[in-house]
Design a protein around this nucleic acid. Structure first.
Ligand SMILES: Nc1nc2c(ncn2[C@H]2C[C@H](O)[C@@H](COP(=O)(O)OP(=O)(O)OP(=O)(O)O)O2)c(=O)[nH]1
Ligand SMILES: [Mg+2]
Ligand SMILES: [Mg+2]
Length: 418
DNA sequence: GCCGTTTTCGGCCCGACTGTTTTCAGTCG
């Protein structure tokens, strides 16, 4: 049975090919469906079994049928047909940063370029020189993008827990060095997604240049990809992209709303606003030329007749409708945690370390803690009882409950559980 | 291709940056 991720990937492939064929709106429709599948919290097969695929935002008749075909056969005939129409390398060109559907299509149809290797050959032969829209800088950009792509695939999405320390280093540097009123991580990180494709950092400041200077000289910046008056994009040494946006403090709420997304959420919010005769952008909510909100997220949503929406819900899955009816449900927070059953003791941990852990747990309002001590079994398996080993290692404090698992020397692969 | 407290047809968010352009197209967030 194909996974949700494979289904989403397949729809993105369809979107790419439709894009280079010059279709309008359809590629976005397929991408929207793909992102919607990304945010699903159960298997597509389960949704299909309940006959509820159509309830997924962005899934209509045509995409539902393709989803069913994919779940049943692992392939989509429509995609196979598109693949026969478009050489595979053309989609690779589309994926080069800075190049898009218009350019990939033009290379393919005008120059007969069907992949990265042919594109490089065309560049070397000077076949792009004099082409309308291709000056020396653009040509250099394309060459650099080809070189980067030859060095390996673009870096994958990062689990959010791996993004945390990186994000906090950047935030600290900007808070300390950039004279910023506020610094927040927005984007998928703030929405609490399991993985992030990049880091989106928002700064409130009247001095963007100072923030950009601090940011550009962070130790692990590999490359600054673009820099203007309000935003900068850089790539970190490990390949992670960081987008920095700087706005005036009076726009901070609107900018945080914009930069937190998701894109689907933003489009729904902005469409509603437009229907109500308003305009929403990253600077505020406007009636005509008059700004009626902007400093805080609460006032931005309130100006649109909406309750504030927790970032974790901003995926375009009905939360905006729910926010018209009144406040949204309070989400579970770290304060709601009653205990932690997965705490590993470090190898050197002793009784004092256990006491420190308990103290920290109490400080966090936890009622219980599950501790795991590894590697405390004597190799012959005939050591003292688990209770005795626990006391030797962790001191006199008695666990409320406990168990021990050790390899059985006489029956390889089996555990002795006490 | 999707969708509907204006619509079942006709729209589909809004703005920044770059390179190339003399007013804008393409790409991206
Ligand atoms: N209004 C609007 N906002 C957008 C659009 N694209 C991106 N944004 C906003 C919402 C996004 O959450 C935010 C950051 O963009 P990203 O491309 O980094 O997306 P996001 O962080 O949501 O996901 P990611 O994990 O980076 O793939 O910028 C767009 O097309 N329109
Ligand atoms: Mg992001
Ligand atoms: Mg981003």
């Amino acid at each position: 049975m194909p996974t949700n991720a494979e289904a989403a990937e397949t729809f993105r492939a369809i979107a790419d090919l439709l894009d280079v064929l010059g279709e309008r709106f359809k590629p976005e429709a397929y991408r929207r469906a793909a992102r919607s599948i990304d945010t699903l919290t159960e298997d597509l097969a389960a949704v299909a079994a309940r006959n509820e695929l159509r309830s997924i935002p962005g899934v209509g008749d045509a995409i539902e049928a393709k989803l069913r075909e994919f779940l049943a056969t692992g392939r989509i005939d429509y995609l196979e047909r598109l693949r026969r129409e478009v050489p595979p390398g053309v989609a690779e060109i589309l994926h080069l940063p800075g190049l898009g559907p218009k350019t990939a299509r033009r290379f393919w149809t005008d120059l007969g370029v069907e992949g990265p290797a042919e594109l490089r050959a065309a560049l070397d032969a000077g076949r792009l020189d004099g082409q309308k829209g291709f000056g020396p800088k653009k040509i250099a950009q394309i060459r650099a993008a080809l070189d980067a792509a030859a060095g390996g695939p673009p870096s994958a999405r990062l689990p959010i827990e791996e993004a945390y320390p990186i994000a906090h280093r950047i935030v600290r540097a900007l808070r300390e060095g950039a004279g910023a009123d506020r610094v927040e991580i927005a984007g998928s990180f703030r929405r609490g997604r399991e993985t992030v494709g990049d880091l989106d950092v928002l700064v409130a400041s009247r001095d963007p240049e100072r923030a950009f200077d601090v940011f550009s000289t962070l130790p692990d910046i590999r490359e600054v990809r673009l820099r203007g008056g309000t935003k900068e994009t850089a790539i970190l040494a490990r390949g992670l992209q960081v987008d920095l946006r700087v706005v005036d403090p009076s726009s901070f709420g609107a900018a945080l709303q914009y930069f937190t997304g998701s894109k689907e959420h933003n489009v729904i919010v902005r469409t509603r606003a437009r229907d109500a005769g308003l305009r929403v952008n990253e600077y505020g909510v406007f009636r005509g030329e008059t700004r009626i909100a902007g400093a805080t997220e609460e006032e931005v949503y309130a100006a649109l007749g909406l309750a504030w929406i927790p970032p974790e819900l901003r995926e375009g899955r009905g939360e905006v409708d729910a926010a018209t009816a009144g406040p949204l449900p309070a989400l579970v927070t770290a304060d709601d945690l009653r205990g932690d059953l997965h705490v590993h003791l470090e190898a050197a941990a002793d009784a004092a370390a256990v006491e420190r852990l308990l103290e920290e747990a109490r400080r966090r309002g936890l009622a219980y803690l599950g501790l795991v001590a590894e590697g405390v079994t004597a190799p012959d398996g005939r050591s003292a009882s688990p209770n005795r080993r626990w006391r030797r290692r962790c001191g006199p404090r008695r666990p409320a409950s406990g168990s021990s698992a050790s390899p059985r020397s006489t029956r390889p692969g089996r555990l002795r559980v006490r």
